[in-house]
Write a protein that binds this DNA or RNA. Structure first.
Length: 527
RNA sequence: GCGCCCAUAGCUCAGCUGGAUAGAGCAUUGGUUUGCGGUACCAAAGGUCGCAGGUUCGACUCCUGCUGGGCGCGCCA
């Protein structure tokens, strides 16, 4: 819709201009403050310039009127134009607001360590990534989703150790000497019970820690997949850190040939300080074991070899310090580091009855994603995360999520959708019965809500490109509110304009349905 | 100490690449139905946009400094 407007305006105005939405819809559907920027150059008052420019648009049929108000040029779209767009959109149904962006994107997200179940912090990145994928694909982006499994390193051993200790604690008379660091929490005891059932009590010996590590890791990975599935999230590919390490030599050669590594004190260092990082980083230790960073270097080498237009990583905000060193490695290996974008997902503070919950894997008193889903449902969980920017700290009280009334905005939107469905039932008509009605001679209320419902495609593009998905939820909430208002003000079934108003309602429902489905939330036809 | 993020109504947050009178939800107070689901709607009240400068015709938005909070600053992952 916006594209049509821009094209029409371009015909009459030279050079660039800003097209924005007026504060007040009664001014027009679109507006430009162009006259202000021209005022200085032309040495005339913005009001006069705006008046003059308006006259040029007399013959544009997509506009009902073009008027100047306080220096702003306001464009009001014609009923015919809006009607044509709406007819098309209703017919497209779930395909409405699709686009043809063709960029290929490799999206890596969640990548939670397989040493414990998903907690609420992971859930935020998971929901964000999944929704970004859904919206992106709707717009035509070719997105591949990937989960990087950190199945190497001491953390996995610590998992085995923790299971072993729990087993000794629960099933033997021996006294456990708890080390400083180990994983605690219910799930470790669950694992140890399971291990006992599978292997018998005799598995809890020092010699079996290795075995328990690898076994536990697989169990955790299954659990994580299960957690994700409950929120409607599936990954196309899982990449194992352990597997990748066989390619270390290749990646290392690339770094070496670009003279971006050096040896010092028996270790290998990356010259990341030459590229935005605070200091150089060790990639191979004295004992020849590569560091965690080395794993990420191989992984990104691997990613870039697959030749996508863009690579997006969603990381927890506590990893922000890591961006510079990974980007520097990508750069040193000869790739365009600007193709790598990192989206940070901020901390989630969960409250319950005003009491703050601390989230720590090691302490084990974290909130499980699966518990939250059980309490508020997948829809509720998803919506809450999608109402906030990913990079702001988010705080919510779980007791509030449990309330299934108007304080939970998701019900508000679903109710609007359900309401439209009920109206159609009451009228005894179907969408097909009213699709060909011409929406003309509309009153202001009708035209505004019709226009609002057509904005979805612009909102989706904006939300995706700015990576600010809350714009979609904000939009849906506003659209639902507009419809509830409309419903209270105008009688639909049995009115003189019944067919027109039904078509209008169908259009609103279409946008709500598409928007909700992209968020992975069900659009209910009755509550 | 250095780096990144944040600071907007009592609370939780929006505010589009700078643009018209800074918005919503919750909470508070008061209203609305013989009209299609009141799980809704209307209205009132609530703000020196953390502080101080600067750039601009115009700043919540951009720049600088300061204050307060979070996170990071491992040869852990």
């Amino acid at each position: 819709m916006k594209k049509s407007v821009i094209e029409s305006v371009k015909k009459h105005i030279d050079g660039g201009f800003v097209l924005e939405k007026p504060k007040d819809l009664s001014f027009g559907h679109y507006a430009t403050p162009l006259a202000f920027s021209l005022a200085k150059k032309l040495k005339k008052s913005p009001m006069i310039i705006a008046d003059e420019l308006c006259l040029k648009f007399d013959k544009e049929t997509i506009f009902d009127s073009v008027i100047a108000i306080k220096g702003y040029i306001n464009f009001k779209l014609s009923d015919g134009f809006l009607d044509a767009k709406a007819t098309e959109a209703i017919k497209e149904n779930l395909n409405f607001a699709k686009s043809d962006k063709n960029e290929s994107i490799l999206l890596e997200y969640v990548s939670a360590n397989p040493t414990g179940p998903m907690h609420i912090g992971h859930a935020r990145g998971a929901v964000f990534g999944d929704t970004l994928t859904k919206i992106g694909r709707h717009l035509g982006y070719k997105i591949t989703t990937e989960y990087y499994v950190n199945d190497a390193g001491s953390q996995i051993e610590m998992l085995g150790l923790s299971i072993y200790l729990a087993g000794v604690d629960r099933y033997t008379d021996d006294e456990v000497k708890w080390p400083d660091e180990y994983y605690r929490g219910e799930y470790i005891y669950d694992l140890c019970d399971e291990a006992k059932n599978e292997f018998g009590v005799e598995v809890f010996t020092q010699e079996n820690i290795q075995k328990l590590s690898s076994w536990g890791k697989d169990k955790m990975m299954n659990l994580i997949r299960d957690n994700l599935m409950k929120a409607g999230i599936e990954f196309e590919s899982f990449v194992s850190e352990k597997e990748l390490f066989k390619d270390w030599d290749d990646s290392y050669k690339k770094l070496k040939s670009n003279d971006s590594v050096y040896e010092k004190d028996g270790k290998v260092w990356l010259k990341s300080s030459e590229f935005n990082d605070e200091k150089d980083r060790v990639v191979v230790r004295e004992d020849k074991r590569p560091t965690y960073l080395a794993g990420d270097i191989i992984y990104h080498d691997n990613k870039f070899q697959r030749n996508y237009d863009k690579y997006i990583n969603i990381w927890g905000a506590d990893h922000h310090g890591y961006i510079a060193r990974v980007k520097s490695a990508v750069h040193f290996m000869g790739y365009d580091e600007d193709k790598l974008e990192v989206i940070l997902s901020q901390m989630v503070a969960l409250l319950k009855g005003g009491e703050p919950y601390k989230m720590s894997k090691r302490a084990g008193n974290f909130i499980l994603m699966s518990d939250v889903i059980e309490e508020v449902g997948s829809d509720g969980l998803r919506f809450i995360f999608l109402t906030k920017k990913s990079d702001t700290h988010l705080e919510f009280d779980i007791d509030l999520l449990k309330q299934q009334d108007s304080s939970n905005p998701i019900y508000y939107i679903q109710y609007a959708h359900a309401r439209i469905n009920q109206i159609f039932q009451k009228s005894g008509k179907s969408v097909d019965d009213v699709i060909d009605v011409h929406l003309k001679d509309l009153n202001e209320d009708c035209r505004n809500i019709l226009f609002s419902s057509l904005l979805l495609s612009e909102v989706l593009e904006d939300a995706f490109e700015s990576r600010q998905l809350q714009k979609l939820t904000e939009y849906l909430r506003n659209l639902a509110a507009a419809y509830h208002q409309f419903y209270n003000k105008h009688k639909i079934v049995g009115s003189e304009d019944e067919d027109k108003l039904l078509k209008l309602s169908a259009m609103v429902a279409t946008s709500l349905r598409v928007g909700l489905s992209l968020m992975g939330i069900e659009a209910k036809s009755r509550m």
